[in-house]
């Protein structure tokens, strides 16, 4: 006789992409690079979901240009997710995007008990609306405060200050020391600088696998590993410190 068919206790883990689709994203193939990066990352995300049965991984996406809207509005199990390409065009309603996310992080619709949500904001430019108002609304939500908030800056025209505001203050003393080596980020408590398609793909892969894993189920701890924040962030992939050449455009 088999082991009794008992259901493992699990909690939802909400993962939300917040994607800049303004007109500038059409340049140098950035929009395609982002669509590609997310699509390529899905098999890895499925594997992480399988390896972490105590988490019920649910994915959504917001896009923002002239206005913000849900690209994937229904929290979707990652196995069922099909990435429909985002299209670039318009200005940069980043504040409105954060407001939209805020409405979904209220309880309800948020479950009473969950794992920390993971929010990934990706932008290549400047917000054109009231970013601070949007961020304030977002951060009024308990689940946004508890969330792992990551930001990816595409190219060199992204507004690093607003992305840092989204992540929260960068811890200066103690913990992981963040340095920027040759313009490459070494801590995700700062916006991640993706200056080519390869770096973007690696950051997206890292956020959707290593970070999701850390938020779902604790990973092995060593002394001196990152301890700040309510989820210790895994190390960034080492290849980023010395990017492998040869895939996609090198400079945008």
């Amino acid at each position: 006789m088999p082991f009794p068919n008992v259901r493992l206790t699990n909690r939802p883990l909400h993962f939300i992409y917040i994607c800049d689709c303004s007109g500038s994203m059409a340049a140098q193939g950035k929009m395609q690079a982002l669509n590609q990066a997310i699509r390529q990352s899905l098999p890895g995300m499925v594997k992480v979901a399988r390896d972490n049965p105590e988490a019920r991984l649910l994915v959504r996406a917001v896009s923002f240009a002239d206005k913000a809207s849900w690209h994937i509005s229904k929290p979707t199990a990652v196995e069922q997710l099909q990435w429909v390409d985002l299209q670039a065009g318009g200005i940069t309603a980043m504040g409105e995007a954060l407001e939209l996310v805020a409405t979904q992080l209220r309880s309800p619709p948020m479950e009473e008990r969950a794992l920390p949500p993971v929010l990934v904001l990706i932008s290549d430019g400047q917000p054109t609306d009231d970013f601070d108002a949007g961020l304030k609304q977002l951060m009024n939500q308990m689940w946004a405060q508890k969330a792992v908030r990551l930001a990816i800056a595409l190219g060199h025209d992204a507004n690093m200050d607003v992305l840092q505001d989204f992540i929260g203050p960068y811890p200066q003393a103690g913990g992981q020391v963040g340095r920027s080596m040759q313009g490459v980020s070494t801590s995700a408590r700062q916006p991640l600088q993706a200056s080519n398609a390869t770096a973007l793909a690696q950051y997206i892969e890292w956020a959707s696998t290593a970070v999701v894993g850390a938020a779902s189920m604790p990973v092995s701890r060593t002394q001196g590993s990152a301890s700040e924040g309510n989820i210790p962030l895994p190390d960034l992939p080492p290849t980023l410190i010395d990017p492998i050449e040869g895939i996609g455009p090198v400079v945008w």
Binding site: L8, A114, P232
Partner: peptide, 22 residues
């Protein structure tokens, strides 16, 4: 048991299962 030995009623009192809660 397919269950965690320390997660019972006290687990239900935790809204966000993050590092401080763990």
């Amino acid at each position: 048991t397919r269950h965690d030995p320390l997660r019972g009623q006290m687990d239900l009192g935790i809204k966000c299962l993050d590092e401080p809660a763990r």
